[in-house]
């Protein structure tokens, strides 16, 4: 490949529709905009002279777009000759991306997908995955490539951080309708990464268990109803959604919890006495807590606790249904 040369290129010669080298950040770049306004283009964009078709942008899409918007007629560029190899050019382009500031999730996905097309798989595993801060395992590549191929809406949300990296990777594998619906919900709720994952995991597992599409779970009237509630803010909606999905994911556990609460309510215990079941009712570690602020209060509450300990309701709550031991 012949060496590239610095040339002043007429912007009219650029083929703006050729985006083979584009790696979209999906983010605005105020710092770059300010710099361009103040100093103009400090680093020349890269072009590939493709002969009669004009020049293809290799690197510097934002800079050249700025020049076009400013109605500049030409720009100083580093021009690669026509006989340059596409894959090699792409690798050079990716190298500049990898050396730049931290890539956002969308850029990372696009860079890895482009590397898969241009670089040897051994190099991807040994060199590029670590540089992208990804585990050097073959199975990591597929999900990221699928994310790179996802609709721009998902990539944009991932770039903005509206959906976390793991959630974006999960959503990339979902069917179109479920992905759109799931994305809309996460964008609306603006919840933490762990809660995003909890929501998506519950939806997937409910759908798989019940043999229905994920979008059916996401558009269940219970779900849509609470998301449309005008009286709740996004935090309240998040909590309501988590509760609803947990009930759908664990219906029998939820029913048992409800039954526990209803039976306990019949005991009419004062607020200072609390009965706590073992987590998920597993094992026999029940707790009864008494709250008091002075000996007099304790003396008042103790007989009530003792009476409760002898009541058939407690037996019922503890669920001793199997007969005598």
């Amino acid at each position: 490949m012949e060496d590239p040369s610095y040339r002043t290129v007429l912007l009219d010669l650029i083929n703006w529709k050729d985006e083979r080298f584009a790696i979209t950040s999906y983010l605005s770049s105020p710092l770059l905009d300010q710099s361009l306004e103040r100093w103009g283009m400090l680093a020349p964009p890269w072009l590939w002279d493709t002969g009669e078709a004009g020049c293809t942008i290799v690197d510097g899409f934002k800079r050249l777009a700025w020049a076009r918007d400013r109605r500049l007629s030409s720009a100083r560029c580093l021009v690669f000759p026509q006989e340059s190899d596409f894959q090699r050019l792409m690798l050079l382009r990716l190298e500049t991306k990898l050396c730049s500031l931290a890539l956002n999730v969308a850029e990372k996905a696009q860079v890895l997908a482009a590397l898969v097309r241009c670089a040897l798989s051994e190099n991807i595993l040994q060199e590029y995955l670590p540089r992208l801060h990804l585990p050097a395992r073959r199975e990591v590549i597929g999900p990221w490539c699928r994310l790179a191929a996802s609709p721009s809406r998902l990539l944009q949300s991932a770039a903005l951080g509206t959906v976390c990296e793991r959630a974006a990777l999960v959503l990339a594998d979902w069917e179109d309708d479920a992905r759109n619906e799931g994305l809309a919900i996460l964008e609306q709720l603006r919840c933490s990464a762990s809660i995003q994952m909890e929501i998506l995991e519950h939806v997937s597992e409910i759908a798989l268990r019940e043999g229905k599409p994920k979008v059916t779970v996401l558009t269940d009237p219970t779900v849509t109803g609470l998301l449309q509630d005008r009286h709740s803010n996004h935090r309240q909606k998040t909590q309501a959604l988590r509760t609803a999905l947990t009930r759908m994911r664990f219906p029998r556990l939820a029913a048992r919890e409800m039954e526990f609460r209803e039976t306990l309510a019949r005991a009419n215990l004062p607020g200072s006495i609390r009965l706590l079941p073992p987590p998920a009712f597993e094992g026999d570690g029940w707790q009864l807590t008494l709250s008091f602020s002075n000996p007099h209060e304790l003396r008042r509450v103790l007989p009530k606790a003792t009476a409760f300990a002898s009541s058939p309701l407690l037996e019922e709550i503890l669920g001793k249904k199997g007969g005598s031991s």
Binding site: E205, I206, L208, R249, F250, P251, A280, E282
Partner: peptide, 24 residues
């Protein structure tokens, strides 16, 4: 990925393993 076996109502048992909710 298509196996439904993980979609049961699993809770963390006293030994740290995931188990079906006791009533099940």
């Amino acid at each position: 990925p298509r196996s439904p076996i993980l979609c049961g109502e699993f809770i963390k048992g006293l030994d740290g393993k995931m188990r079906y909710f006791r009533d099940i």
